[in-house]
Design a protein around this nucleic acid. Structure first.
Lengths: 250, 250
DNA sequence: CGGAACATTGACGATAATCAAAGCGAGTGG
DNA sequence: CCACTCGCTTTGATTATCGTCAATGTTCCG
């Protein structure tokens, strides 16, 4: 599981238990703005390397006019080191979308680990690639799909990512996003989200109530979304024939 | 310059000149689809690690209906390892937008280099962070800005990135994107691009002719775009006061 | 009970897409 | 040297997706 940075990390933690300082586990309430704590820095050594253990969080940016765009969903197993603020100036903030457990590791410790175990460095690079792939797919989603397709695609992606990390919960997943959150993920307005959600419901593709999302017809949903999980699948599979249908028109 | 992966790489190449096999330098014509060559793989060892030396290229995806979305602009100094196709199945393709020089390095060689010089591994991670930051900013751009702001923002970003790597060419840069390309970067239609370009011209912000882009009033353009270069600036600057104005509304 | 956050509905408006045609410039070939 | 084509740009008219505004409903919680 490339995705499960968590796994690799906990392995590492097992190996060098006494060595990881500041592995404080936090339980945070929804809508808690965690950015200040996790992305601040006082001197290089204090840069921390947080990993989500459970719950959903998100990175976002706020524009001048107050508009918000969520740039990344942080699901269990996801790491969010200062990725988007290389100089420590946090353009992006982090917010929890459900109660979260977050492990916090000093980046200096990470670096020591990497020196000791090159495989961890490799894992970090690979994980970074997957983040890239997801971000690129979001650009495609927001740039070239209409509202219904976007929603469907996000649901497929979330479902798939959760299945990669968690035990497979079948077609029912915890989906804590409000319609406002969805709007800010997909670059739409809450009102429009509402209408398109209804459409998905009417077409009997999903049920979404009380933050529980049930996918009734995964294949149909993927069809609507034009979803191809290739960008999420861990590498080194190398099944040359199994590529899902992907049109390459001019 | 974190951005200039090129620099670090050429340093490395200097250090271990005889060691880098397959450093073939290629000159490619515009609209050349380079993906097949660079992103294919036959066994893990053949994965290559291309770096753009000069010219512009782009990564993109094609949707079912034939729509294209460009997910990344590859400017001089940019590396595009198989970042978005961890399993070798290329969802994304690469196309050159102007004549390009591209260096091609075997990933196995990179790995050897990293083992020898941990700083290179660190540089790769940092570089990956910057790619992430750019992708996130594209999500914001396409998700929450209108057409005019998007155009302005893309121009500011390109200008800034080029200034980081190349010598500062002042306010005139080579800008090889056609209006169709721009449309596929910004998630709009070519017709709309055309109209908004005219607006930028009428407002005396830019001139764009014969693939030469001149920025007449950079500050005004950044104002239109809501552009804040913080996400592009190399880290470890740590100027606590110099953060450009950034509104954090609720 | 009252309030807050979230969901839903309707009417209207605006930004951007679509369709279609014409202009322009550069390179090609007769 | 001049048609001719091809890729790119420009323009106009029309459509529609999505946004805006505003109000009402609902659920949950103190």
């Amino acid at each position: 599981m490339v995705n499960a940075f968590l796994q690799r990390l906990s392995q590492a933690a097992d190996l060098t238990d006494g060595e990881l300082s500041a592995v404080d586990e936090l339980c945070r309430q929804p809508k808690d703005i965690a950015a200040k704590k996790y992305l601040s820095r006082d001197g290089d050594e204090m840069v921390s390397f947080p990993v989500v253990l459970s719950g959903w969080a998100a990175r976002y940016q706020i524009l001048r006019d107050g508009a918000r765009q969520i740039t990344r969903l942080l699901l269990p197993g996801d790491a969010f080191y200062f990725g988007s603020a290389p100089n420590g100036v946090a353009i992006e903030e982090v917010i929890t979308l459900s109660p979260c457990k977050i492990v916090n590791i000093l980046y200096s410790d990470m670096r020591r680990l990497i020196d000791r175990f090159p495989a961890i460095g490799e894992a970090m690079r690979t994980y970074g690639c997957m983040e890239n792939a997801i971000l690129a797919s979001w650009v495609v989603n927001v740039g070239r799909r209409d509202a219904l397709e976007r929603m469907a695609h996000l649901i497929c992606e979330s479902h798939y990512r959760l299945a990669l990390v968690d035990l497979d919960q079948g077609q029912q997943i915890h989906f804590p996003l409000t319609q406002d959150d969805l709007a800010d993920v997909l670059g739409l307005t809450p009102v429009h989200i509402n209408r398109k959600l209804q459409q998905l419901r009417q077409d009997d593709l999903i049920t979404l109530r009380c933050k529980q999302l049930t996918i009734h017809d995964l294949r149909a949903l993927q069809q609507v979304a034009g979803f191809d999980p290739a960008y999420l699948t861990p590498r080194a599979q190398s099944q040359p024939d199994q590529q899902s249908p992907r049109a390459a028109a001019a």
